[in-house]
Nucleic acid binder design. Structure first.
Lengths: 163, 163
DNA sequence: GTTTTAGGTTGCAACTTACTACTTAATTCA
DNA sequence: TGAATTAAGTAGTAAGTTGCAACCTAAAAC
């Protein structure tokens, strides 16, 4: 994969540091995984993850501040607080899956429950991968770094995916 | 997305904690991003990222231990150590991109340099997304968690993607 | 053979995390 | 209604991690 040795300063501005600021602390990612798997309450997170209560309170608070989780007291039992993924939080799913798949492939060596499946046919999802704008899957050698300014728009078959 | 309220114990065994053990510490991810963008030497990482030298040494050491970076003294100047991504490390690229894209979409609000493009047509890659085994893109509502044991193999059109 | 460079290590202060016990408010139970 | 329980969170303190600056070592350059 060709790299640009220049523009290293620009690295500091990319989306990664911002993302890590929001979810890069110890436990944040595991809390999110819990949320994706159906945990919604303080005590559920605490007993499932075994995290210290003050750290959990702190992390939940930060995730809420960042708009990743929504905090709602339930109307029928106002002691109970429900933490639920917002759209912003839910959009971390591809990241989570990619990291989990990597861990399964290179660290644990085995696929673990529960498995995410396509609702239509109950078959496991494909491995998270890099695709061209037209849908072709790209390997590491099909890729290059480029300056945004140098990219020429061409007749885009089905762009819109780039966000 | 349907969740299973059971098997929370199993969460502890999934690939995520293992992955986080390897790259979940502060700075590790940014060091990797540097490696993806062409950094190879201690002083390059240090001056580009502004990380403390002892922390950098510690993190590089852990990444090497985990087989994510390879450490090679250069033959023509044996003071110089080259850190280079292994295959295992390079396979973190989808995770990195997914997280970076999320950060750009939800935190910084803008796309930043350098951009990863398809070498064939120099167009930016598609957004990292979740796909069915047959290649259809899946939204959050097309997904369900399931026990691996309950999944029936069916005539797999082009499986092999599941890892 | 002195100086410079690359890649570290060391010591210490500041910050973060973890463990345990306590608090507060809403709900249930007797 | 009043006592016990539960959900969520706070407080105190010990242990671990991070960050800064100065120092070290071996190879290369002058």
């Amino acid at each position: 994969m060709g790299m640009l040795k220049e523009d290293l300063a620009e690295l500091a501005e990319c989306g990664l540091p911002a993302a890590l600021e929001a979810i890069g602390e110890r436990w944040s990612f595991l809390i999110l995984r819990g949320a994706f798997n159906g945990l919604h309450h303080f005590e559920e997170f605490q007993s499932t993850l075994g995290i210290a209560r003050n750290i959990l309170a702190n992390r939940l608070g930060k995730l809420v501040q960042h708009g990743i989780l929504a905090r709602t007291p339930l109307p029928d039992d106002r002691r109970k607080i429900e933490y639920r993924l917002t759209e912003k939080g839910a959009e971390l799913l591809p990241t989570m899956l990619a990291l989990r798949q990597w861990g399964e492939r290179w660290e644990t060596g085995c696929i673990s429950n529960p498995v995410l499946v396509d609702e239509r046919d109950s078959q496991p999802i494909a491995k998270i991968a890099i695709h061209a704008h037209d849908g072709r899957e790209l390997g590491l050698h099909d890729l290059r770094w480029m300056h945004a300014e140098d990219i020429k728009e061409i007749g885009t078959s089905r762009l819109r995916a780039v966000a």
